[in-house]
Amino acid sequence: MIEVKHLVKIFTSRNQVVRAVDDVSTAIAKGEVVVVIGPSGSGKSTFLRCLNGLEEFDDGQVIIDGIDIAGSKTNLNAVRREVGMVFQHFNLFPHKTVLENVTLAQRVVRKRKAAEAHDKAMALLSKVGIAEKAQQYPSRLSGGQQQRVAIARALAMDPKVMLFDEPTSALDPEMVGEVLDVMQQLAREGMTMAVVTHEMGFAREVAHRVLFMDAGRILEDASPAQFFTAPREPRAQTFLKQVL
């Protein structure tokens, strides 16, 4: 579903060059749940943002469902329709109600009729357990509720892949569970997912594969069982010792 070949992303700020993503190659199969973990500044978020072209990369290829997203003839907007993304800070549209947040892109991008978009939105909002807040503005919702709306908003486009960029990092601890539950349910339904997270419990229980990144490179690519019990890399070992 997703193929990444020799991906390189370089940030240049005043006389400093940072290779945020340094020659990363991997693949994510259809229906697979891949969790990317690593210390902060390891480039895992940048890597994820390269997958839907939110971050322009310097070298390499990202192929989604057979389409090279940096290809000269590629319509990036058409690719992004198929790739849902959930952000750390939710990024709901504050001037739209919860319902409008979920229907807007359906209307504008997918050109769905109002009634169809409405029904789809309400179905998704009930799925993430927040249908009763449909007419509220996002500012009235708790962080956990906002993040669930953000997931519904991404799902409304019927994406083939979902990217999660630290979806629980900005949440109060008691709200992390409700978001992880929704994500777990999605994984069970067979959604292809790439998740950057610090939730080791989620990685252990839900992931099919764990990628450990440090300094822009994937140091370890293993099943969660193997990664959490017997990590090969010394960097992964120290990291796990610190977080577990």
Binding site: R80, N91, A105, V108, M157
Partner: peptide, 21 residues
Amino acid sequence: PRGQSEAARSLGMSSTETMLH
């Protein structure tokens, strides 16, 4: 905030649609 246009672009909106909506 940049996150607003990033969210809109990630949903497949063009830059014009993002600006407008």
